[in-house]
Amino acid sequence: MDWQALWLSLSLAAWTVAILLPVSILFGRLLATRTFRGKGVVEGLVMLPLVLPPTVFGFYLLVTLGRNSPFGAAWQGLFGHQLVFSFEGLVVASVIFNLPFAIQPAQRAFEAIPTSLREAAAASGLRPLSALLRIELPLAWPGVMTGMVLTFAHTLGEFGIVLMVGGSIPGETKTIAIAIYDRVQAFDMRSAATMSSVLVAISLFTIAATFALSARMGRRLDR
């Protein structure tokens, strides 16, 4: 059992969720409530990671974030090490790859709030930020949370992109999914089985906890 890989996976998932939570609220609400030129293009771009093979996506990320790209060069200048093949690089890749899983459910949830409720909030004298925090977010929360659970579970299991962007550096980019593959390659089926079952348990627990939480919130709203 590679505890280091498990810990790495969990912290990668946690970072991704932490970054995508505000992003999904902001962009989900924006896409749900505004119409602007090129909205279709933006929505399409967000959906792109769903249809691209992870290796293809990972390849382009590798090129975009690599040392020879302006972004990669700027990163290296700032932090003294390259972005790809590092934990930070994995976080960036993971955030981009999880955009559709985080934003889509949030967008649907914000779309489900009737316009008249937003208007009633404004007419009640709530500033836009208070209206978001006190009226819209509590109503959209189940959708936002679904997005976060999907993101978390998806990050734990991601393989192709991690391998392309991060490689398999122990303690830096070797996640549990990579470690399982590694063990199987070495014919260490017992370790692979242990790690797989731990991953299954964590995933099941996450989903069960979410369902229980959103059911409780749902009851509160229906009552």
Partner: peptide
């Protein structure tokens, strides 16, 4: 709108479903 002192009653009520009746009213008492 939030800076206009306007009271608005909507056709479909537009009550905040996650708040109680009193909390709904209190929302306007900022």
């Amino acid at each position: 709108t939030h800076r206009r002192r306007v009271g608005l009653v909507f056709q479909d009520y537009a009550l905040f479903p996650h708040l109680t009746a009193a909390q709904n009213v209190a929302t306007s008492l900022g």
